[in-house]
Design a protein around this nucleic acid. Structure first.
Lengths: 139, 139
DNA sequence: TTCTATAGGCACCAAAAGGAGAGTGTGATG
DNA sequence: CATCACACTCTCCTTTTGGTGCCTATAGAA
């Protein structure tokens, strides 16, 4: 199993500064990016777009499911801002807006694939661990 | 939600994994698990443990950096509950508690490696996209 | 004797996230 | 004429998140 060490050497800046050539500002940026994209709705929207290609506003909402209009707007704006998706407005009435994944959005989806597989593989073990934890806490 | 179900099925087809049936309750659980572990502090703590092996409470706090005691306690508890880490209490004074990654914690870290690499690779493009977005918004 | 270190618990408070519902503009449709 | 549809925006409200400071026990050091 390849170590995460090489890939995220910048993160060591906090702990031991074993790689001084990667500055703390890079570390902060990577942290910030992770903080933004490591969001529930972002991942679900990425997945919806990966599945269905180009989608309209309400279509994204329907496919993701359980998301309020407010959060849908906000998350889509953030993703557009970060360059994960492309927003195309057709100036017609009623309004028509298309959302499409960008190249780095596709790359991120591919990178996140492993986490989905992990969840699918281990969710039962996580569930068992939670039950065991509750039993331990009671005694 | 059929979207996740199909996506995971596609991943399994790609990776050669096989699961006979995936119901909506499984989907909800997977969503829940993703929602729990897709957390900033959880990821940083996982990385700290991957880097340094077994750690004590204050060591984790120092290595992660910028985390309050309250959030450290809470996140560690959640991770222990989910079975991502193992907590060992040595009944001595002053108290001594060790935190170690479990097997599924290591698997998750490995699965998440791709996202760290993505962030390392594309953070500059994300930064550029944000600047472009701000320019667009102004005009 | 006094002080320190460890791993938290608990109470209080500020800030942010997030949901519900109403409003908006207008062309097409009944 | 009235209604619908889309893609939002806005306000009000509740819930969650997260920070700060104070508290605990006690062996060993100063």
């Amino acid at each position: 199993m390849p170590s995460i060490r090489e890939a995220v050497a910048a993160m060591q800046a906090q702990g031991g500064l074993q790689h001084p050539e990667i500055g703390p500002e890079v570390d902060a940026l990577v942290r910030d990016v992770i903080g933004q994209i490591a969001d529930k709705w972002t991942m679900l929207i990425l997945e919806a777009l990966e599945e269905h290609g180009t989608l309209r506003f309400t279509q994204v909402g329907r496919i993701v499911g359980g998301i309020s209009q407010k959060m849908l707007t906000k998350t889509l704006r953030q993703m557009e801002c970060d360059g994960l998706i492309t927003r195309t407005v057709h100036p017609v009435i009623p309004p028509h807006v298309d959302y499409t994944m960008s190249e780095i959005g596709r790359e991120l989806t591919a990178a996140f694939c492993g986490v989905w597989v992990w969840a699918e593989t281990y969710y039962s073990q996580v569930d068992a661990a939670r039950a065991a934890f509750r039993m331990r806490s009671q005694s």
